[in-house]
């Protein structure tokens, strides 16, 4: 179809055609199969865009709600007991031991993991060939980070990046500092930037981006990210375990 025809589709969908034009349009729909096929696809694409792009937030809210209900369901599923019979004392003792073991393994294996279970912290040391003022900022950022004063570290790292020191390494530690200071959404944007890049920190960013979502208890987003941690990453096994638990 040519450009004028696509604009005609748009006019028809917007209700901009006169009665006569509309009648002609509809007559062509019944007589011209190619015209009809193209219009049907065009119309569906319009609905697709309005929903998946235009209502992306609502769609994500639904996905989250679904995951929450599914989670609650999996945890509270009713169990059925078929028979009741009298137990001997030693059987009670054995049953109690088994129950304790089951409870321990339940908490080890099935309890929903939290960010705090997996957060790891190690001091950093970054070097840049910057100006005097950026070196000073880097010192501030680094020492705040190493003292686990993450809010101050996040501020200093952000200033550093604004001053043009936007290396992937700085971006990663800025994001981690943001996660730690409860600025998860801003952190998510930085992880995204790293993941889309081709630096050596791109893989590392997936793991931390997943932990960031775990901290927010956005379990399905976290799960998807954990799944993306490649087998070459040192976090691969933990990521696999976590995504199964979620």
């Amino acid at each position: 179809m040519d450009a004028d025809t696509y604009l005609l589709f748009e006019d028809y969908l917007d209700g901009r055609l006169s009665d006569e034009e509309k009648r002609m349009f509809e007559a062509r729909l019944t007589s011209d199969a190619e015209f009809q096929n193209s219009f049907t696809t065009y119309k569906k694409l319009n609905a697709f865009g309005k929903h998946t792009i235009g209502k992306a937030k609502e769609r994500e809210a639904f996905r989250q709600n679904l995951a929450k209900v599914a989670n609650d369901y999996a945890r509270n599923k009713p169990t059925t007991i078929s028979k009741i019979r009298q137990l001997r004392p030693w059987q009670y003792a054995a049953a109690a031991t088994v129950l304790v073991l089951i409870a321990i393994s339940y908490f080890q294996f099935f309890a929903i993991p939290t960010y705090d279970d997996y957060r790891e912290f190690s001091p950093i040391s970054i070097s840049v060939r910057g100006t005097e003022s950026t070196s000073e900022l880097l010192q501030q950022a680094q020492s705040a980070y190493n003292n686990e004063n993450f809010e101050a570290a996040a501020v200093a790292f952000t200033r550093l990046r604004n001053a043009g020191e936007g290396s992937p390494e700085i971006l990663l530690y800025n994001a981690i500092a943001l996660t730690e200071s409860d600025e998860e959404e801003t952190a998510a944007e930085l992880y995204e930037e790293l993941m889309n890049g081709d630096s050596v920190y791109a893989e590392e960013a997936i793991w931390y981006a997943a932990l960031n979502r775990l901290k927010q208890e956005k379990h399905s987003l976290a799960k998807e990210l954990f799944k993306k941690v490649p087998s070459t990453s040192p976090h691969y096994r933990k990521a696999q375990k976590l995504q199964k638990k979620l």
Binding site: M1, A3, T5, Y6, L7, F9, E10, N37, S38, T41, Y42, L45, N46, G49
Partner: peptide, 17 residues
């Protein structure tokens, strides 16, 4: 803007077809 929108959805229509 309307013309560009219709052209872009048109292009997408053709890719799909």
């Amino acid at each position: 803007a309307r013309k560009k929108k219709s052209l872009c959805i048109g292009q997408l229509t053709e890719l799909i077809q």
